[in-house]
Nucleic acid binder design. Structure first.
Ligand SMILES: [Mn+2]
Ligand SMILES: [Mn+2]
Ligand SMILES: [Zn+2]
Ligand SMILES: [Zn+2]
Lengths: 143, 143
DNA sequence: TATCTTCTTTAGAATTATTCTAAAAAATGT
DNA sequence: ACATTTTTTAGAATAATTCTAAAGAAGATA
């Protein structure tokens, strides 16, 4: 019999699949980070928040590896980066067309479906330039 | 009739006026930074770029004072901050309603008039939150 | 003017998010 | 197993920004 690895029952095959498709070796660290990122609803994390989260789950991954992994997942198209705050960088598991509310008091992001928002009247890009993307950030504060 | 404007009045009295109105003492450093920021067309600067610029003009101001001054000007409503890049913060002399092109290759900002762009379909803010502002960043790259 | 008080400036240290280095560890192919 | 390649990681390094605290400048008062 193969060794029964009870710890990695449900999320494992799913995460391993994602990693292999992305051309990344399914290491323990990547599997665990992928499980936290992709086995649930879409979410927004910072390197620090994800590192804290896996640490609280008793998983030992260095912060450098969290940074490396977030960037590799981004390069593989599994994540996108969101720039809303000067002091911390966010990564988003929702890579589809959508925009964000940013709760300035909490530092929280909330998705706005891409179909909901329309941006009209964007002038032609400057000469020699092409539009890469249009980001909308709706900054909200506690009333 | 010859009404004094920002472009044709001499920098010093204009800058001193702005500072006094903002409740800030017109020190040499503030006057010089204000002259560079406000006596010409609207512009986008980083602390470093403004510090380099005044240094090249032979003016001696510490980087700490540039940061202090940019924040004081922002608090006084003379500048606004623009978050487009994770590695550097931008300050904008145009405090009116407008949006931006961000040239990712160069790190340059270009204004888009507020009347030009319309954002429709923004959902209601989350409970207990009010919209502070809606920022649109059109990220462009060299073709 | 001289004096008093309140800001302001500044050098340098500290902070913080992130990246880099380079050596050990793990994964994969044969 | 062995060889090759990739990955992880501790700790050092980087870079934007902020902080500290002491010296300097500005405004008020007489
Ligand atoms: Mn972070
Ligand atoms: Mn920054
Ligand atoms: Zn999102
Ligand atoms: Zn602008």
């Amino acid at each position: 019999m193969g060794k029964a690895t009870r710890e990695n029952s449900s999320p494992a095959p799913f995460a391993a699949e994602k990693l292999r498709t992305a051309g990344l070796r399914p290491t323990r660290q990547r599997m665990e980070l992928a499980a936290h990122l992709f086995c649930g609803d879409d979410r927004h994390v910072t390197a620090e928040s994800l590192h804290d989260e896996v640490a609280r789950a008793g998983i030992k991954v260095s912060l450098a590896t969290v940074y490396n992994t977030l960037h590799q997942f981004t390069a593989a198209g599994l994540l996108r980066q969101v720039v809303v705050d000067a002091v911390r960088g966010y990564f988003d598991t929702n890579t589809g067309d959508h925009q964000h509310f940013f709760l300035e008091d909490e530092g929280t992001l909330i998705d706005i479906p891409g179909e909901a928002i329309q941006v009209a009247g964007v002038p032609a890009a400057p000469a020699g330039m092409a539009v890469d993307r249009v980001d909308v950030v709706v900054r909200v504060k506690r009333t």
